[in-house]
Design a protein around this nucleic acid. Structure first.
Lengths: 122, 122
DNA sequence: ATGATGATGAGAATATACTATCATTCATGT
DNA sequence: ACATGAATGATAGTATATTCTCATCATCAT
């Protein structure tokens, strides 16, 4: 059965403290602040396991690499800072976006990404 | 100075006929229908040149690989078919989306992506 | 027509993201 | 405390996208 390791606990804590989508490197750095020996392979393994369990979900934004965020969050979108490349949550959503599709197209989801400079980079 | 080659003409024609963002492979396939000898390196080179000239612009949607589209089109968004992976233009845009950002964040652009099945795949 | 040189095409090389391997560590049930 | 085997970490391997190299081709000013 699955074991409760310091590494996996660290990775979970990183996400619980983040409040925004994280890249593999962000998880690695922040995880190493808790468990210094943490390696990339373990980060990859656990991102996959936690995603498989439905605890994390994948977020694909421009700029390479997948990002991950807690899966239990209500519908929301993202802001991507062009300066620091960090992603942030946007909790409001324009209504009826899915009605914008051309006729004959079946929409089953949508993603809205805002670009600019975050509060820290302004 | 720059030369007007059959390959570059073919690639330009592919975009003028497409009316939607194309992946490298879509450009290659359609380009080879015009100039059979067309190779990947040439496609890459010309995508970069045409983008640098401002004739094409890059579109980054989920699912790997960059896509390219004519740069002179008015503001619009995209629909990505989960079945055939083709991208289509969505010409309507929800207003005031950029006002959704958190306080202190400077928004300078946005992208809206609708997911589902296109008319041909339905 | 022709020569200079920009462009091409095939394949090698590189960059990057991710996965597999495996000896070692350590969480867990007893 | 101990045995079991799941998890880890270092690194090798794989996959994929893109760029580089270079011999050859072909455009265009003359």
């Amino acid at each position: 059965m699955q074991r409760d390791t310091a590494q996996r606990r660290a990775i979970r804590r990183v996400f619980l403290n983040a409040g925004r989508p994280l890249t593999r490197d962000e998880v690695l750095e922040r995880g190493q602040a808790i468990v210094p020996s943490l390696g990339v392979a373990t980060v990859y393994r656990n991102l996959k396991i936690l995603t498989g369990e439905g605890w994390l979900s994948e977020v694909e934004l421009p700029g390479g690499g997948m990002r991950y965020e807690l899966a239990d969050r209500p519908h929301h979108h993202h802001f991507l800072c062009r300066s620091c490349d960090q992603a942030f949550d946007v909790h409001r959503c324009p209504d009826e976006v899915e009605a914008l599709a051309p006729d004959g197209f079946e929409v089953d989801g949508h993603e809205l990404i805002l670009f600019g400079r975050c509060a820290a980079c302004t």
